[in-house]
């Protein structure tokens, strides 16, 4: 192996994670990218609580209420993020999508131990984002919300949106 070859291979082998960074109620949130199935514009998503995309139903997950975040999901940059975890699927409305961020898993900072209440189950940690931070949402907690709704049978169905706006793979290139 040449020295040049060694230099070329300086990329860290540390485990990496990808997150979709969004804003809800003025707070940056990081969603595990492997749970993101796609993004829709509000025009594509419509006003229905539950969305059916390619035959799969995504129940509405309201993050604003449990997190006490102001509802800002009516702006021009509002998007609907489709999430799935196994057979559980949900959609969340976000005020803005910032794109994908790939970091080493060690760069996800733990939630400080001073946060002693149920927020410990809301977040997987904190990551640095621009001049601020993004809160890494615990996907199990997020999907718990839509799991309950699906179990209660309150899912509304609507026609399939015309197309997927973007997938995480597409976002990574942009």
């Amino acid at each position: 192996m040449s020295l040049r070859g060694r230099q070329a291979g300086t990329t860290s082998l540390a485990p990496r994670s990808r997150f979709l960074i969004v804003t809800v109620g003025g707070t940056h949130l990081a969603l595990h990218a492997d749970r993101v199935q796609g993004l829709l514009t509000m025009e594509e998503a419509g006003l229905a609580e539950a969305l059916t995309v390619q035959g799969l139903t995504y129940a509405r997950v309201d993050l604003g209420t449990p997190l006490h975040l102001p509802d800002d999901s009516e702006g021009p940059d509002t998007r609907v993020v489709l999430l799935s975890s196994g057979s559980v699927r949900g959609n969340i409305r976000v005020a803005q999508v910032h794109g994908l961020k790939e970091i080493e898993q060690s760069q996800v900072l733990p939630l400080p131990r001073h946060f002693q209440n149920e927020e410990q189950s809301w977040y997987h940690g904190i990551l640095l984002f621009e001049e601020s931070v993004a809160l890494v949402l615990n996907p199990a907690w997020v999907m718990e919300g839509c799991g309950v709704r699906q179990a209660l049978g309150t899912v509304e169905h609507r026609g399939e949106p015309q197309r997927m706006l973007a997938t995480p793979r597409a976002l990574a290139g942009g």
């Binding site: 707070t27 975040l69 001073h114 209440n117 149920e118 931070v133 809160l135």
Partner: peptide, 14 residues
């Protein structure tokens, strides 16, 4: 701000 239920702890500084 960090949404939280812990009294008096609902933000971080960077």
């Amino acid at each position: 701000p960090v949404p939280s239920r812990t009294p008096f702890v609902s933000a971080v500084v960077r």
